[in-house]
Simulated assay, not measured.
Amino acid sequence: MKAATVVSIKKELQHRSSEELIELCLRLSKFKKENKELLTYLLFESHDETGYIEAVKSEIDDLFEQINTNSYFYIKKSVRKILRLIKKYARYSLKKETEVELLLYFCKQLKAFKPSIKHNVTLTNIYQRQIVAIQKIVATLHEDLQYDYTVELEQLEA
């Protein structure tokens, strides 16, 4: 079965009643965890972006604490997992400021991580790629926000 385009789905949804839309949303949430997480964000957390960011930051803290530090292999695996999670949560929000906040926090945590990431090329590259990604996003933001985030970036790079 071939999936319909977003435009055709939108047109079809406009012709449905509110009860049918509720049923469709509930059915959609049963199929994938990401669908349920997105609906949770849209219904309960989208009105309080700062609370959402803080909740994600605390989850990042927990994940950093759980990293197995016996080998850089396990550290790399865990760091990539955390980064995937951050990207997913940033996609739910669709706000560039949220993505920058989360990536900055990730970089701060990674820089402060023990054992140091400087002893591993892959981890250093991950860190550097995130710094570049933050710089690209910051360039698209309002001037005041650009200044604030640039100051934080300079602190990270120092």
Rank of each mutant, 00 (worst) to 15 (best):
V7K: 10
L110K: 00
E143T: 06
E157K: 02
I117G: 02
E99C: 00
Y72A: 04
V6C: 08
E19D: 13
I53Y: 01
I53P: 05
D48N: 12
S46P: 05
E157P: 00
E54A: 05
K95Q: 14
Y72E: 03
I67N: 02
M1W: 01
S46A: 14
L43T: 10
H15S: 14
S18T: 12
A90T: 03
T98V: 12
F106I: 02
I60H: 00
R91E: 15
S71H: 04
S8K: 07
E20Q: 10
D61Q: 00
T150E: 13
L145Y: 04
V100G: 04
K118W: 09
K95P: 06
F31H: 09
K108V: 06
D148C: 03
E157I: 09
Y105V: 04
K136I: 09
D144V: 05
N70Y: 04
R27L: 15
K32M: 11
Y92C: 11
K88H: 10
Y41S: 08
E65M: 03
L153A: 06
K96A: 14
K111S: 10
R91S: 15
H47G: 11
S93E: 10
K108I: 07
L123T: 02
V7D: 13
K11C: 06
F44D: 12
S116E: 11
N68L: 01
I86M: 03
I75C: 03
A112H: 01
D62G: 04
C25Q: 09
A158C: 09
A3I: 10
I137C: 04
V79F: 03
K108M: 12
